[in-house]
């Protein structure tokens, strides 16, 4: 088993929380893991990404090669497209449909969505609305996205839910329940393989 994942978004959106949950579940499965993060200046409202690699065999490179990623998980549609060069031709894009517009020349949203939809394997969800519908705060949108990505991650749904519970355990039962609900909402609204 080997999955190379690019997590994408804008600084502050919470891509690293997604990585934390996947990492927790992967380690619990006894998988190897490497995760390259972006810290420092680029966090200030700029584009951020993290390369997350999980595998049943030891992993060499901290970075994913172009054409090597199985999956892009993005909290922002344009940010998903920023890394398509890294995606395998038959790789998956799982992205939020909500644009984060903090630049004057943000592309036309409809055209942007058409570009995402031009990829055969894509899931595009309004993750913030789904979070709210599930009774979770908008900040749990990243967990909705994670739920939608579960079928592509190669880690069992129940194992992933266990991971969510462990990661949020110290924040109390209510926070755990809301985050689990958010993940389930994403899972229910995504695509099953």
């Amino acid at each position: 088993m080997k999955k190379d994942i690019i997590l994408a978004g804008v600084g502050g959106q919470g891509i690293l929380s997604i990585a934390t949950v996947i990492g927790e579940a992967a380690l619990n499965e006894g998988l190897y893991l490497k995760q390259a993060e972006v810290h420092g200046m680029s966090q200030r409202g700029g584009d951020v990404q993290s390369n997350l690699r999980i595998s049943s065999d030891p992993i060499a490179s901290d970075l994913i090669a172009k054409g090597g990623a199985d999956l892009i998980i993005s909290l922002e549609p344009m940010e998903a497209l920023r890394y398509v060069e890294y995606l395998k031709p038959d790789g998956w894009i799982v992205t939020s449909s909500a644009p984060f517009i903090n630049i004057p020349n943000y592309p036309d949203l409809d055209e942007l969505k058409r570009h995402v939809e031009s990829f055969k394997n894509h899931v595009m969800l309004d993750v913030e609305s789904l979070a709210k519908e599930a009774g979770a705060p908008a900040q749990a949108a990243n967990m909705v996205l994670l739920g939608a990505a579960i079928p592509m991650l190669g880690i069992d749904h129940d194992k992933m839910i266990e991971g969510v519970k462990r990661v949020f355990a110290r924040k109390g039962d209510e926070v755990v329940a809301k985050n689990v609900a958010a993940v389930e909402a994403g899972y229910a609204n995504g695509i099953k393989l």
């Binding site: 090669a65 497209l81 990829f119």
Partner: peptide, 11 residues
């Protein structure tokens, strides 16, 4: 490796 072309819509 075979890969997708980068997307010029991205700014």
């Amino acid at each position: 490796l075979p890969k997708n072309e980068s997307d010029s819509i991205v700014v």
